[in-house]
Design a protein around this nucleic acid. Structure first.
Length: 608
RNA sequence: GGGGGUGUAGCUCAGUGGUUAGAGCGCCGGCCUGUCACGCCGGAGGUCGCGGGUUCAAGUCCCGUCAUCCUCGCCA
């Protein structure tokens, strides 16, 4: 089927094109039929161009009709110029047109970006091929493509090789649940889709490739979240003969270059980034209550216990006697909060396991508000737990927190983990309330020196805090036999705006140490043999020191677009339960396929 | 697996236990020669997610269920 092909893109014509005869291809974005006059905004991926048909043209054109239109670029009268469109100074006077394909009535108002933001997502995903036509969606895909292109260019220039690794591979049951693929040749055996290319990239280092990267699809069969999908994309990197500093330096330089180029090329309303902040895991938890801090603002956590050693307030007293922690946050201007707003903060703390949230306000000393009191040093405190605190304790807490009149102080008293989780969330909410989580800022940082293992209370064993191939810091190796919880690892995260963007480590490259770590984390010698024989053996053939990192491509695009939903940065995302409404996947398969695979369905377990 | 929100026209949403369930946009028909959120007139369009129950009467109240969004657990 032949058709008149475009000679110019819709977004290009300007006054300087006046008089030219051109052809455009695209879709009817908006039709305005005035009877004798017919205007159509024709859209392609570059933009919109208004076309005007000859007087009294009758044409069956509605939204999203696919068109080829030939005509003359004509300047508009001054009174008809549309300053809101880049092509608004001109229009195309139609001499010939062809309907390439008629469009059915759309399931949603595609041309109205504002309305589209509220349209039911499942509907948008079912008709994603239409949704993708929206200029804003196109921009998101274009940004993503440019980001990947920038990353490739940077790493290619640094002599990295892009290498593909298998998608159907071996299940290693540690970590996330695997997606399984039945093996037809031997029923009962399965491939798994990779949770990451971790072992392959290490084997590439053993193979002497030295510098590897991949834009790698990863698969994890776990519960979804706004920022998680069953399949997602990582920038996966591995290098040989390097130290942690080499990898952090590479990531920092690459990210600064790629992100700043994207900000410039796409005119993103984001401040250019420079160097990355750096803090240890312990510092990050102490100051931010999280290993993925939002570094766009301060308001760090302070240790309130220092001021409360002799407190008579029973809740605090009991906490300290149990060897637990009392930590606090300052909410600048928080004295103005209503009872209801403070209750919201309490509920937030409770939803992360805290038994409560203790608060009191510091107000202007001359404001003799009901329920307030003036301390000996001239501070005026009000409400919450203030009546349980001595003047000296108030003074000390105010000094520790740097609070001023008008501020609210919040405290969580509990074990280390609960105070971290609760205060981290409260800090983020304070930051949001005060407008400190500025969408025009990207605050990248490295969190380093993670613990090698964490105690798993349920399973009564040590679990790797990163993965089993992570190298302990050489200085801490003696602790393997005495105090594994104290071992720090050559392990690092790169964080941005409260998200974990990526993580990596220096790997173990000696088989004896790898076996020892497996034993520590409860992988028996038999399991090591069955699941990891290949990598342990590989390390016996002169494996080089190596390490790497993996960062989330989807999350980077989310950060650049200030988008909280990962589905918006993927062309064909799945719904929360892993369902794909467009393809209607997953689906049943033919009886013949079951048979070939040697599979049968188990009876469903009875509902309890 | 747990908690919370949502589900009414193609879309976005109103709807106090009581008449024939409404609005805006979209769609269809008519009119309209400078629109760009075109305008004006008319019209069609409903399994109130689904199944039970309470009631003289249920979109509305109760129970169950499904879908979807957010979230806790989970995510080496």
């Amino acid at each position: 089927m032949s058709f008149q092909q475009r000679t110019i893109n819709c977004g290009e014509p300007r006054a300087s094109h006046a008089g030219q005869t051109v052809t455009i291809n695209g879709w009817a974005h908006k039709v305005r039929d005035l009877g004798g006059l017919l205007f159509v905004d024709v859209r392609d991926r570059t933009g919109l161009l208004q076309v005007i048909f000859p007087e009294n043209t009758k044409a069956e054109i509605r939204s999203e009709t696919c068109l080829s239109i030939t005509g003359t670029i004509a300047p508009r009268d001054a009174s008809n110029v549309n300053p809101n469109q880049p092509t608004g100074e001109v229009e195309l006077r139609v001499t010939d047109f062809e309907i390439l394909n008629q469009a059915a009535v759309l399931p949603f108002p595609l041309s109205d970006e504002k309305s589209m933001e509220r349209v039911n997502e499942e509907l948008r995903m079912k008709y994603r091929y239409v949704d993708l036509r929206r200029p804003s969606v196109y921009q998101r895909m274009a940004l993503r493509a440019a980001a990947v292109k920038g990353i490739r260019a940077y790493l290619d220039n640094e002599t990295f090789l892009e290498i593909e690794t298998p998608i159907i591979t071996k299940s290693t049951p540690e970590g996330a649940r695997d997606y399984l693929v039945p093996y037809r040749i031997e029923p009962g055996k399965f491939y798994a889709l990779p949770q990451s290319p971790q072992q392959y990239k290490q084997l590439l280092m053993v193979g002497g490739l030295e510098r590897y990267y991949q834009i790698a699809k990863c698969f994890r069969d776990e519960s979804q979240r706004a920022d998680r999908q069953p399949e997602f994309t990582q920038l996966d990197i591995e290098m040989s003969f390097i130290t942690q500093e080499d990898i952090l330096g590479l990531i920092e330089r690459m990210t600064v270059k790629v992100v700043n180029d994207l900000i410039a090329d796409f005119a993103l309303d984001i401040e250019p980034i420079s160097s990355f902040e750096r803090l240890t895991y312990d510092e990050s938890l102490a100051l931010y209550g999280s290993d993925k801090p939002d570094l766009r603002f301060g308001l760090t956590i302070f240790n309130a216990a220092e001021a409360l050693a002799n407190t008579e307030f029973s809740v605090f007293k009991n906490t300290l006697e149990a060897g637990n922690f009392i930590r606090g946050l300052r909410y600048p201007g928080g004295a103005e909060l209503s009872r209801k707003q403070i209750t919201e903060f309490e509920d937030l703390a409770k939803s992360f396991g805290a038994k409560g949230l203790a608060t009191f306000s510091l107000i202007n000393p001359s404001e003799e508000a009901e329920g307030s009191r003036l301390t000996a040093s001239g501070l005026r405190v009000k409400g919450g737990i203030s009546k349980f605190l001595s003047d000296a304790e108030v003074d000390a807490l105010v000094a520790l927190s740097g609070a001023e009149a008008g501020d609210l102080l919040c405290f969580v008293a509990d074990n280390w983990a609960v105070t971290n989780d609760g205060l981290c969330r409260i800090r983020l909410k304070i930051g949001s309330d005060l407008g400190l989580r500025d969408p025009r800022k990207l605050a990248f940082g490295f969190v380093v020196d993670f613990p090698l293992v964490e105690w798993n209370e349920d399973e009564q064993r040590w679990d790797p805090s990163h993965h089993p191939f992570t190298s302990p810091k050489s200085a801490d190796i003696p602790l393997l036999d005495t105090d594994p919880g104290k071992i720090r690892a050559d392990c690092y995260d790169v964080v941005c705006n409260g998200y974990e963007w990526g993580s990596g480590s220096i790997r173990i490259h000696r088989p004896d140490l790898q076996a020892k770590i497996f034993t520590l984390i409860g992988v028996t010698p038999e399991q090591q043999e069955e699941r990891f024989a290949h990598i342990l053996e590989a390390f016996t053939y002169g494996a080089p020191p190596h390490g790497g990192i993996a960062t989330g491509i989807d999350r980077l695009i989310m950060l650049l677009l200030n988008e909280e939903n990962i589905r918006e940065v993927m062309a064909f995302p799945k719904m929360g339960n892993g369902y794909d409404p467009l393809m209607d996947a997953p689906s049943t398969v033919d009886e013949k396929q079951w048979e070939e695979m040697g599979l049968m369905l188990r009876p469903a377990p009875p509902k309890s």
